[in-house]
Design a protein around this nucleic acid. Sequence first.
RNA 1: GCCGAGAUGACCGAGCGGCUAGGUGAGUGGCUGCAGACCACUAUACUUGGGUUCAAAUCCCAAUCUCGGCUCCA
Length: 458
Amino acid sequence: MLKIFNTMTQKKEEFKPMHENRVKLFVCGPTVYDNSHVGHARTYISFDVIARYLKYNGFSVFYLQNITDVDDKIIKRALELNIDPVKLARKFEKKYMEDMKLLGVENVNLYARATEHVPEIIQQINTLIDKSFAYVTDSGVYFDISKFPDFGKLSRRNIEELTVHRIFNDSKRNPGDFALWKIKNDEPFWNSPWGVGRPGWHIEDTAITEEYLGYKYDIHGGGLDLIFPHHEAEIAQMESASGDKPMVRYWMHTGFLNVSGEKMSKSLGNFITIREILLDYAPEVFRFFVLSTHYRSPIDFSESALQQSGNSLNRIYKLIETIDELRDSNISESNENDIKYTNLLLNAKHDFLDNMNNDFNTPNALSVIFNLIRDVNRGVDDGNISKNSLIYVKNLLIEFGEILGFEFYIKPCVDDKTEDLVEVMVDVREKLRERKDWELSDLIRSRLREIDIILEDK
RNA sequence: GCCGAGAUGACCGAGCGGCUAGGUGAGUGGCUGCAGACCACUAUACUUGGGUUCAAAUCCCAAUCUCGGCUCCA
C-alpha cells in the first residue's frame, strides 16, 4: 500500500487516485529566466522517481508541468540584456529541457507554457469576477482573499499576521490580495477585457491544470518554498472558480537543497547550475546523491558528498560487472543454493517496495540494494552462487534501477579507437608480465594512469 | 514578532517504543609480483538535563544550538 505525506493534512495517507488507476500529476515548473540550478534538479529528480514508481505500480500517469515564460523577472532580465523577453524565455526553456534530459528526467507528458494559455487564463479570471471573488481596479484584477475563508489552510497561517509584509498597493482592498491580471503596456502584453497587460503569477497554473487535468486532480507537487503564497493562491483561485474542493488530493513538497547549511541563493553566491555540476560529475552520481536523502528533508550540497555518492554507486556497478564476468566463466548453471538466493531476492524486492511505499523512502530503498549486494558478494566469494541466481540478481538490480532512474546495465562508453588502443597496450603489458618484467609493465600502468586510464589487474 | 524543520558514530544518512539500517572514509584479513581495484570482517552513535515505561535515538517536559519560511524563489 502506497502512502504519501500530504502537506495539507501533515500526515502520511494511503494513496488513492480519483479514477481507479489513472493519476493526474502536476508539478510547478521553472521560471525560465536563467540556467536552472541543482536545487531545481533536486525537485525534478524527486518527482521523476515518484512518477516512475507510480507507473511501476501500474498507474497510468499523466504528468503535467508548466513553464513560466512571462513574469517580472524574465522581463527585467531581458531589459538588462536588451533582448526580447520571449526569446530569452525560449532560450532558457531550451536549456532547461536539455538539463532535464541529461539528468534522466523524462516522465513529463506535457509541458505547458503560460504564454500559450492566455485565453484560458482570461476565462478563469472572468469566472472569478463573475462570482465576485475578484475585482477590477485601474492597475489590474485582484483576488479578494476576504471572500475565501480557507485562505491559509495549506500553509497553516493566520491571514491577519501576513498583511505586514505584503506588497502595498492603493488599489487593493486588502494587502493580502494578489494579482490575477496586471495592467501593463510593456512587452509582452495581451489584450484583455480589463486592458492590455499580463497574467499574475499564480493564475497560469490553475488555468493550465483546469485545461488538462480538470479542476480537481490527484497530486500537486513543487518545492517547499511554493507553499506560500503560490500554492495557497492556486487553491483560492481554483476552488473559488469551480465552487468545489479540494482542488488537489495530495500536496507534495520537496525540501531545499542547501549549501553549507544555507539555502542556495544568488545573493549568497552559492548558486550552482546543473550544467556546472554535470561538468564534473556524471548525471547518475548526482541522481544518487539526491536519492540518498528523503525528498522532504533538506539536503546539503557538497563536492565531498557527491564523491561519496559516486563511490557508493560504483559498488552497484561493480557487482553487475562481476556478474557479467561470471556468466562467461564455467561456474555451474544452477545448484542447491538457488532456493536460498531466490528467497533472498524475494525478500529484497519486498523490502525495497515496502520502503518505496512508505512515502518514497529512497534512502532506505538504496540500503536494501546494498544489503543484497553484500549477500551476493559473499556468495560469489564463497563460490556457492550459481549462474542462474546471478542472472536473477542482475535482473532485480536492473528493475530497481528502472524505478530509481538508473541504467545499471549500461557501461560507461568510450570511443572505439581509444578502446582498441588501450587493448593493444594491455596485450603488450600482459606479455611483459608473463616475462615478469615488472618494471616495464608498471611503467605502462603508471603512464596510462596519467591520462586517466586506470588499469586493474584481476 | 509569528510559523516551521532539525540536532544520530570521522563524514553522509535511515529509523521514530524492544530487533546490527545502509553508504563513504578508517582498521584487520583475503586476493595480488607490486600497486590499485575488488571481497569479507571489525570498530565508532543517537545535543543536554529531567520524566513516562518492564523497555526510549524513538513518547512527554525543559534547555541549548542550527537552519528555513513569513517578499520573487524548485
